[in-house]
Structures are given as C-alpha cells and as structure tokens.
Design a protein around this nucleic acid. Structure first.
Length: 277
DNA sequence: TAGCATAGTCGGCTATCAAG
DNA sequence: CTTGATAGCCGACTATGCTA
C-alpha cells in the first residue's frame, strides 16, 4: 500500500491521488504522471525526485519520512511496510495528569518487553530507540507526552495513534469501548480499567505482593496485544476503501501467551479498599 | 492574450474526545 | 482536573482551462 501512496508528495492531496489511481498510476514504478491528471507544474517537475526519495525510505525502513508528510488520517498505511521495526506501546501511571509511570509494556508482534518502576524502568529510554514506528491508542495525547516529560527525553519516532483511524471507521468510546464493539474478549481482564491499574500499583507498593504486580502487568501487556489486533483490523478496513485490498490484506495476528497471571479477585479487593466503589 | 471561472491545496479557527 | 489531534468549515491563494 505504501508504494501506491502519493498524497505525501507536495501538491498532491487525496483527491489528486484518487485521480492518479483512476488513470492507472498504481505504484511508484510510474516514471511520470499522465498529462490528463491535473498537477501543479512544480509537482510534475519534481515527480521523479519524490519517487526516488520515497523508494529509498521504504527500502531503508525509515517510516519517519512518510509520517512527517502524510495527512495523519492516512498514517495507517505505514504499518504493512514497517511491521519489522514497529512496536505497540502502552504505559500505566499513578494518575491522568502528572505523577509517576508505574509500568510500561512494549510488544513488537512477537516478543513482549515490560518495565517496572523501581526495577528496570530506566532501561526504557534506551530500548525504545530500537523501534522506528510506535503504535498506540491515544498515545499522541497521553503516552508519548507523558514519557517525554517523565524521562526528559524526545520520542521522535513515527507514530500511529489508532484512536483517529478507528474513529473514522465509526469505532469510538475509548479502547475498551472499541473492543466491546468488535467483540474482543479479555477473559479475566475484561472489566479492568486504567484506574484499577492505579489501585493495583498502590496496593503493590504498600504490601509488595507479587500477585498484585502480576495482575497489573498482565493488564498492561494485554493492552498492547489488543493494539496489534486493532492495527490489523484498521489496516484491513481502510484498505477496502482503496483499489488495493486484494494485494495487501493482512492475516489476523497470532496472540502470544501473556507471561503473567491476572487475578480478578485481586482487582475486586483493591477496589474495595478505595473509596468510589 | 486578457479576463474570468473553476478546482484543489493549505492555513487558521473551533468543538470534541481520549488517556491513568 | 490536561494535552494534543482530529474533522469540518471558511477564506486566501495558485494553477489551469475556457472564451472571446
């Protein structure tokens, strides 16, 4: 799908891209655009330059080039070509505005990494540099700014925030709301939410009970695994709106084993200990 | 060739929405 | 309670096409 993309080229927006597709320009292998497609002169002049640059960034696996130029509703197009350098990301914190990061989960589609405050959280700023494409839900507003403030680092990688493409597919109401609408089942973790993660952390700090931390980590990791499913869903639904669905539809992902056991009774218990429940 | 109409891009504005 | 991205709208600007 990336090599059928033209709306990252200056002067080409989605309408012109549509026109290119209809006139038979389906990929970057086209040496010059047909004259019946209306283009600015400068766009026509620089055509081969932009094509060469695009091919080179595709081959070198540098999604940032495209994420800077694409309209953000089209960032889903990056996933197929850059899966190898992508990671699904989710953080848990002690509150919505400010506070500490408690745990982080990173999932690259195969293996799972997790970080715990007071244990190995400090390794995260180094590890995150191994990925060139981050995928989150509402991470552009929450996770990434939170991480940048907390560690005092910049996280400049290309970033697909699934909140927006999912909304454009009619799926909104938060991550859990979207999962419900798609019939995704989390078993033991079905009714656990972000605030429970705050309570779990507080309880773990107070008593040091490993089973409490395990439940929190299971929840944190489950979020990133769901992101994989949602990314593939988004990709496959969006590709249907292009002429390229046949060529690029992705298989449903295999779901990995979560290396921690969640216990809903623990969630029930920490809720009892906090007012509001 | 000048003058006007049209189409497409792009920037600025605002209301909405999601995260622990 | 905050932060940032989005769609939708509107107006400016530019390139192109049509007509006389």
């Amino acid at each position: 799908m990336l090599s059928s993309t033209f709306c990252h080229i200056p002067g080409i927006s989605e309408k012109t891209e549509q026109a290119l597709w209809s006139s038979g320009v389906h990929s970057w292998s086209c040496p010059f655009p047909p004259t019946e497609v209306k283009l600015k002169q400068s766009t026509r002049n620089d055509w081969s330059h932009h094509i060469r640059e695009s091919i080179s960034h595709q081959e070198n696996l540098t999604p940032k080039y495209f994420s800077d130029k694409l309209p953000s509703k089209e960032l889903w197009r990056l996933y197929h070509d850059f899966q190898q350098v992508a990671a699904f990301l989710d953080i848990e914190t002690t509150g919505l505005f400010g506070g500490d990061i408690t745990t982080i989960a990173l999932y690259d589609g195969v293996s799972i990494k997790h970080y715990v405050n007071g244990v190995n959280l400090h390794e995260f700023p180094n590890d995150i540099q191994n990925y060139r494409l981050l995928i989150s839900y509402n991470g552009k507003s929450f996770d990434i700014p939170f991480i940048e403030t907390y560690f005092n680092i910049r996280v400049p990688q290309a970033h697909i925030d699934l909140r927006y493409p999912l909304k454009s597919l009619g799926l909104q109401g938060g991550l859990k709301g979207v999962e419900k609408q798609l019939g995704i089942n989390r078993d033991e973790l079905n009714d656990v939410n972000g605030y429970d993660a705050v309570l779990l952390w507080n309880e773990y700090k107070k008593k040091g009970d490993k089973a409490v931390l395990d439940t929190l980590l299971a929840y944190n990791i489950q979020d990133t695994i769901v992101l994989h499913t949602l990314m593939v869903h988004t990709h496959n639904e969006k590709i249907k709106t292009t002429p390229f669905a046949k060529a690029y539809t992705l298989r449903k992902p295999e779901l990995p084993q979560i290396p921690f056991k969640a216990d809903f009774n623990i969630v029930r218990r920490v809720r009892m200990g906090s007012f509001g429940y």
